[in-house]
Design a protein around this nucleic acid. Structure first.
Lengths: 374, 374
DNA sequence: TCCACTTAAACAACGCTGTTGCCAAAGTGC
DNA sequence: GCACTTTGGCAACAGCGTTGTTTAAGTGGA
């Protein structure tokens, strides 16, 4: 790590805390306390952020006998990001501001099987149509747009932004979604599995930051997004979280994956019998396995099957600190926030890295931000 | 992160690469390439390391048309660390050098149930008796001893170094092993679960660094150590890796833990029947669950049960890149290496932090090293 | 109303980091 | 023997967070 990287790192630290503080804001001294930097360093960094328009002073705290602390807040409209959720039959595009608030949403029916070209076309159309509420409008070409985060159902390579063998849609195999869409829109694009995007969105909102949890998505299949130690864990090939095909019953019913006694097969069979209690028991046992193996704090439920199963799921012989609880299933919004937050920090890094001409990026070990992601 | 922390961070980066390079060594330019630092920065950092005696020049590479590269190597005897493995019936203490090589080993029978005082006493005795082979001797008080890493079977709090409800040994509950032993020896001590220590030791030797794997220990119980993205994952309460009590058979045989159909209960029942193939199948299915959920590269087997089960375990319908393979079960050595490597870096940090009197540590976010740990 | 006191935050000087530009050292190959 | 390539040290430098000091902006008692 070199000096520009250090600068970006600390700026990202401060931005993360500002984002977490939300509308309540946070004072310079609190920032210093939480980052471990000196108050003077925080003053310098926040001065830069204010000069760039990313942060602003917003009132003061009550005095404790001396000069009251000045509260700093993120400037929500200093930048926007697009969250794009491509599901099997629906497309959702959201515009979120720096603070993570959704500014605008567009939905459209989608035939994911129609092929890459048609989907890219539809996605670009909806993204272009996203606009700020009057009187302000935000055209696509605006410099306020930081990037696009795309959530896709199938397996993929997050690092390269390439899709792999999406179940039932062979025509997408190997499609370089990130690069093609990025070229089309002229914006940085990141691609992620939908469950991971949802988990990341939840992680950005988690308090306290740095915790561990699993997001269980009960949809067409059963997928999990794992947030371990505050950071999204994708695994070696972006394949982590394949919850549905965990074996829970040796020699159990056959599953479409070729195995036997998978959680998905077991719970689907139970649902087909009308035995919702049994389906919930299966899920609960699977969740308990997760909790035991990873020693996580919470399991959050989301997706269409959440309502039917949510109230019934029990993680079995769970310890006191562990609980399963339904989460609001606003996956797309979360995907959008992810895109927003991530791109905001990336952009900052980019600025810092480019600020000195001739700088060699070299080995490329971008410093992680304090919260989730990377 | 401030400048002293940056310095420590980069020094640890370089030290990690030097350690990974082993006896083959590594040139300054390679270090620059891999760390992303400029060659000049690497020259400065390695000059400091050489001045401290931690690294040394060791020959040159073949020329490629110009001045040949000078090879740098870690100086193994620049520092030593102790690895202490407390098992239910045996105590093992090893002395390892900076490069991770075992210099000296001592074993002694142990009654873990005899209580903390007796165990501390026995451990201190064995550690004090560890010595370099003649003619050089390394007394305990030597400044070359960097620290002690302790591997313990039961659940514990790694952060505070306190043991919790070790199965069958209630007298250890809440014992502050780290602080008591540290006080007794006058050395820094870290405490870890034995499976985690073993996994960390394997991670330090893993090539390429940064990969993910699970270490499955087949001993009295079935425990796993998880290395995710190159770093040991301990979970929120140092409880990650409880592999033995993953449910693999809903409504299966009762387990001592109170559940049903746990991997441990299933495989023990199979072994009791003399059906080793079935035990191996159970383990393989459990390992396949691990691989699927965490998208890891390898599952390594170790422990007393390894030989009997190792050759038979199959991770089921595994993908091409995934394999299960037995690992040499030298847990104690690994625990020792861990203590060594970790303490070496810590000491460096400590030096840097203390080099300027009056420096305020504050928030204390010690930078992680590039490889495993933290 | 004044003034001592407390707390927050900016200003200026500083030490230390990695970086850049330059040059000596140490090889290869025609 | 000389041109060329490559490595790596030396010196000057920009930029980072830190320290010491000053200014700003409150509270609270006389």
């Amino acid at each position: 790590m070199n000096l520009p990287a250090l600068r970006s790192h600390n700026a990202a630290l401060i931005l993360d805390l500002l984002r977490t503080a939300g509308e309540a804001g946070i004072s310079r001294l609190e920032l210093a306390e939480r980052t471990g930097l000196t108050p003077q360093a925080v003053s310098k960094i926040t001065a830069r952020l204010r000069a760039e328009g990313l942060a602003a002073e917003a009132g003061r705290r009550a005095s404790t006998g001396g000069k009251p602390r000045t509260v700093l807040r993120l400037v929500p409209d200093a930048g926007y990001a697009v969250g794009l959720h491509l599901d099997r039959d629906e497309l959702t595009a959201v515009l979120v501001d720096l603070a993570g608030a959704t500014v605008s949403v567009r939905r459209a029916p989608l035939d994911f099987g129609a092929g890459a070209q048609a989907v890219i076309e539809a996605a670009s159309r909806e993204i272009a149509a996203l606009a700020l509420p009057p009187p302000r409008a935000l055209p696509l070409a605006s410099r306020g747009l930081l990037g696009v985060g795309v959530a896709v159902p199938g397996p993929l390579d997050h690092g390269r932004g390439v899709l792999h063998r999406v179940t039932g849609f062979p025509q997408w195999d190997g499609f370089a979604l990130r690069d093609v869409l990025g070229e089309r829109l002229g914006l940085p694009v990141v691609v992620d599995k939908d469950t991971n995007a949802a988990a990341l969105g939840l992680a950005l909102r988690a308090r306290p930051a740095g915790g561990s949890f699993a997001y269980l998505h009960l949809g067409t299949g059963l997928g999990a997004g794992l947030v371990l130690g505050g950071a999204l864990y994708r695994g070696a090939r972006t394949g982590a979280g394949e919850f549905g095909h965990q074996t829970l019953q040796l020699d159990g019913v056959r599953c479409s994956c070729g195995g036997r006694g998978c959680i998905e097969a077991l719970s689907l069979a139970a649902v087909a019998r009308g035995d919702l209690a049994e389906a919930a028991r299966v899920l609960g046992t699977g969740a308990a396995n997760l909790v035991g193996l990873l020693d996580i704090d919470r399991v959050l439920l989301g997706g269409a099957g959440r309502r039917r199963a949510g109230g019934r799921v029990r993680t079995g012989r769970g310890g006191g600190a562990r609980r399963t609880r339904p989460a609001r299933g606003q996956r797309t919004r979360r995907a959008g926030r992810r895109g927003g937050g991530r791109r905001a920090r990336h952009r900052r890094r980019g600025c810092a890295a480019r600020s000195r001409p001739g700088l060699r990026p070299r080995g490329r070990r971008v410093p992680g931000s304090r919260g989730a992601e990377e």
